[in-house]
Amino acid sequence: MFRFKQFTIQQHQTAMKVCTDACVLGAYTHPGTTHVQPAPTLLDIGTGTGLLALMAAQNYPTAHRIDAVELDPDAFGQATDNVAASPFANRVRVHQTAIQDFRPGYQYDLILSNPPFFTNHLRSPDAATNRALHTETLPFTDLVAAANRLLHPEGEWWVLLPPYEAGQLETLAQQANLWPFSRLSLRHNARKAPFRHITGYRRNPTSLHTDTLTVYESDPANPGRETYTRPFRQLLSPFYLIF
């Protein structure tokens, strides 16, 4: 269980647990960094526990159409329960389907996705873990096609991936006329290379804005230990109980 300031995520039935990089994606895509309307239509592709959909509901309190799509039946049930127990239950709908088959009849102003990205890694004996981590159920070609089909002409699509996979996705996205306009590189500390990229895409090519968020820094009060950086604290303070 992971408690946030406005909702709680139960995660005992899901393969993918709450993690720092997903929380950064949910916190970062708020009205100050996105350029969508104040009450956008929102889609979370592969919602898992429902985390990103609930963070989006908190970030956009006037958004009334928030859809979360999840293929795995156990994760779907977990996300449904988490949404029902949240203060945003009347604004978030969870759908059990593959995004390839999802046909809502409208397009979205803001799409969020923390997709599976392993391709040739060793498989887990747990099938749900494989679905969550490996691209077989959602290859990047299908993800790009879904985003291209479901994104409003003026909308934004934000994706969380490791740097190498982010480059692979970018090539496919540009072939579909989806162009990166913003990238946040996430790194553990100033000595480490980025381990995740959060990239925003639009339909029209433009210059790419880049930034870096460092999670930890040396703690001056405790030599040899690390503490969260001020920018990380500021970003996650609307959500994390510890800030």
Rank of each mutant, 00 (worst) to 15 (best):
P73K: 07
P73Q: 09
P73Y: 10
D74G: 04
D74I: 01
A75M: 07
A75H: 07
A75G: 08
A75N: 08
F76C: 05
F76K: 02
F76P: 01
G77W: 04
G77I: 01
G77R: 14
Q78P: 07
A79C: 11
T80A: 11
T80H: 09
D81E: 15
N82F: 06
N82R: 04
V83M: 02
V83W: 00
A84K: 13
A84H: 10
A84T: 07
A84V: 01
A84Q: 09
A84W: 03
A85K: 11
S86E: 07
P87A: 10
P87V: 07
P87T: 08
P87N: 13
F88R: 03
F88W: 14
F88V: 02
F88M: 04
N90F: 02
N90M: 04
N90L: 04
N90G: 02
R91Y: 04
V92M: 03
R93F: 02
R93K: 13
R93M: 06
V94G: 10
V94T: 13
Q96T: 06
A98C: 10
A98I: 01
A98G: 15
A98K: 06
A98Q: 05
I99Y: 00
I99L: 06
Q100K: 06
Q100D: 06
D101T: 09
D101C: 09
F102D: 01
F102H: 09
R103Y: 06
P104N: 06
P104C: 08
P104L: 02
G105L: 01
G105E: 00
Y106L: 01
Q107T: 15
Q107F: 00
Y108I: 01
Y108E: 00
Y108R: 00
Y108Q: 00
D109K: 08
D109Q: 15
L110F: 12
L110C: 10
L110G: 03
I111A: 02
L112S: 04
L112D: 02
L112F: 11
L112T: 03
S113Y: 12
S113A: 15
S113Q: 07
N114I: 09
N114W: 12
N114S: 14
N114R: 13
N114Y: 13
N114M: 12
P115V: 04
P115L: 03
P115W: 06
P115G: 06
P116V: 12
P116L: 07
P116M: 09
F117W: 15
F118N: 12
T119M: 05
T119Q: 10
N120F: 05
N120S: 11
H121K: 14
H121Y: 12
H121R: 14
H121W: 12
H121S: 15
L122Y: 07
L122D: 14
L122K: 15
R123H: 14
R123Q: 08
R123S: 09
S124Q: 12
S124N: 14
P125I: 10
P125N: 11
P125W: 10
P125A: 11
P125K: 05
D126C: 13
D126F: 14
A127R: 10
A128C: 06
A128Q: 13
A128H: 14
A128I: 04
A128W: 07
N130Y: 10
N130C: 12
N130L: 08
R131M: 15
R131H: 15
R131E: 13
A132K: 09
A132P: 04
A132W: 11
A132G: 10
